[in-house]
Each structure stands twice: as C-alpha cells, then as structure tokens.
C-alpha cells in the first residue's frame, strides 16, 4: 500500500528540495550569488520604475506614494514566492508537458500534485525576492502607519495564497493546450503568465472601469497586486467585496481542474512521442 501523505511527509519532501538547493548554493556560491543579485536587481527595477513615477507625480490614480510602495512590496512578495516554489517549471508546466517529461512524475510513488508542490522548493537561491518583499512591506507599513495585528498578517497571508493560486491556475489552464500540441504550446505558460507580469505591477486606480473590469476577470492582472493591496489597505476598488479574489479562485479552480484533468486523460490515452531532457532535474 502506498504511504499516506501526511504533513510530516510533505515537510520531508520540502526538506530534501531545500537541502539540494542549499547544497547547490554552497557548491557554486559565486554563481549562486550572481544569480540572486541579478534576480533582485531585475525585480527591483520593475517595481522601482512604477514607484519613481508615483514619487514624481505624488501618487498614481488616487493612490498615494506610500500606498504604491505597499503595492510594490506585495508584488515583490508574490515574485519571491513564485521563484521559491516554481523554479523547476512546475508552475510553467506547459514546458514539462510539451517536453514529454510528465513520465518522470508517473514513476514516482507520490500523487502528482504533491510532487509538483514540493519538487522545486528553493529557499536559499530563490528566497531573495521574498526577503526584499518583506523589507519593503515593513517600510511601507511604517510609512502608512498601519495597525498591524495578527489578524491583518493572517489576511496578508491569505491574499498572498489566493494570488498564487490565481497564477498557478492560470498557468495550468493555458498549459492544458500542451497536452494536445506539445511543440507549439511548450512555452504557452511562460508567455501567458510572465508576458503580462509587468502589467500586474501597475496601479490600476484612476483607470476607467472598462480597463479595470477585464483586468480583474478575463486577464486577472489586477488580482496580482493592485486589488489585494487595496483590500489590505481597507478600500477595495470598484465597490467590490474584499472576498472577490476568493470568489474568483472558487470559480477558476474547478474550471482549471476539469480542463487540466481532461488534458491529462488525453495524454495517458494518446501518449507523447516527444521527449526532450532539457530543463528537467537540473
């Protein structure tokens, strides 16, 4: 009988990924530091550009400079979590599907979702943006004079979790196409998620509703940082409820799950005659 997936088992799986990440960091420290440095600079450049514009004009679309800083901190935290848990193509899963690498997962005695959630945990080489995000969040919170309680920190954690679920669900939704067209759709997840990443750091306050509404529904870039930040600041936009992101996830998840499972079923019925080792278990 297959062993049960307990909390301890998940921690052990995350632990071995973290251990391998630390081993890589300590073995190739010079290169690891170069990558971490470049990663921080790249992410800070994106958020600084928006912050500097808001500083020059005294805010953007009704959001003050400090509120924009708060939103940038939220965005950096999301980038940090993404890098920490998704650096082995387990979030950009169209690459794994398109390259025929799912078969490596089938031969492990673990549920596929547990494998994908734990296989790329890299707190040492991937945690830098998360750390920078925490620092930015503390600075923004001080400047805004927020009353930080346990409940507020819990809300922040819940919103971060919801945003990550939206990112992963969106990626898996578009990645399902790779089951049917592995070569053409190999990069679809990267294109769909990272291709619009810059848009997610832009404060949408002040934009007309016909821009805001699509960006909170069809292309949910507004849910990446702008909407959750305003909810945490106590003024959700467009008269929507603070529960809107949770509702969005409740609708998106079953749709994604259904479409992805259909794709997976197609894959195990038809198979994939493509196999590319590139990028797997690096």
């Amino acid at each position: 009988m297959a062993d049960k997936i307990t909390f301890t088992r998940v921690i052990k799986l995350l632990g071995i990924s973290a251990k391998m990440d630390l081993a890589w960091f300590l073995r190739d420290t010079k290169y690891a530091l170069a990558i971490i440095g470049a990663d921080i600079v790249s992410n800070l450049s994106v958020v600084s550009a928006v912050f500097l514009i808001s500083a020059r004009f005294g805010g953007i679309g009704g959001m003050s400079v400090d509120e924009v800083l708060f939103m940038m901190a939220y965005s950096t935290l999301i980038t940090g979590i993404f890098v920490m848990f998704g650096s082995h193509n387990n979030i950009h899963i169209s690459r794994i599907i398109g390259r025929g690498q799912l078969e490596h997962l089938f031969i492990q005695p673990l549920p596929i979702n547990v494998q994908l959630a734990t296989c790329s945990f890299s707190p040492f080489t991937g945690g830098s943006n998360f750390f920078v995000g925490v620092v930015l969040m503390i600075i923004a919170e001080r400047r805004l004079g927020l009353q930080v309680s346990f409940g507020w920190v819990l809300s922040l954690a819940v919103y971060l979790f919801i945003t990550m679920v939206v990112i992963v669900a969106r990626s898996y939704l578009v990645s399902s196409l790779a089951f049917y067209a592995p070569v053409a759709m190999e990069e679809i997840s990267y294109t769909a998620v990272e291709g619009t990443w810059l848009l997610s750091t832009f404060p949408l306050s002040g934009m007309p509703p016909f821009v805001q509404i699509p960006l909170l529904t069809v292309l949910p870039e507004g849910l990446m940082a702008w909407f959750p930040s305003l909810c945490l600041l106590g003024r959700p936009p467009l008269g929507l409820s603070v529960y809107y992101p949770a509702l969005y996830v409740i609708i998106l998840l079953p749709i994604t799950s259904y479409i992805f499972k259909r794709g997976l079923s197609y894959y195990v019925r038809k198979g994939s005659n493509r196999y590319v080792p590139y990028g797997f278990r690096r």
């Binding site: 062993d3 632990g15 071995i16 081993a23 890589w24 492990q108 005695p109 196999y275 080792p277």
Partner: peptide, 24 residues
C-alpha cells in the same frame, strides 16, 4: 536507456538521497 532519473547538476549520491526521501 535514453533518459536519466539523476539530478543533472548534483553529485550522484545527492540523487540517491533524494530518491530515499521521495520513495520513503
């Protein structure tokens, strides 16, 4: 034969230890 289960950028023993945890 044309695929590997080893982790590319790690020593062989690291892949073995990874397997020990994943296969329990």
């Amino acid at each position: 034969g044309n695929r590997t289960e080893l982790w590319w950028d790690h020593p062989v023993i690291q892949s073995f230890e990874w397997k020990k945890v994943v296969w329990n």
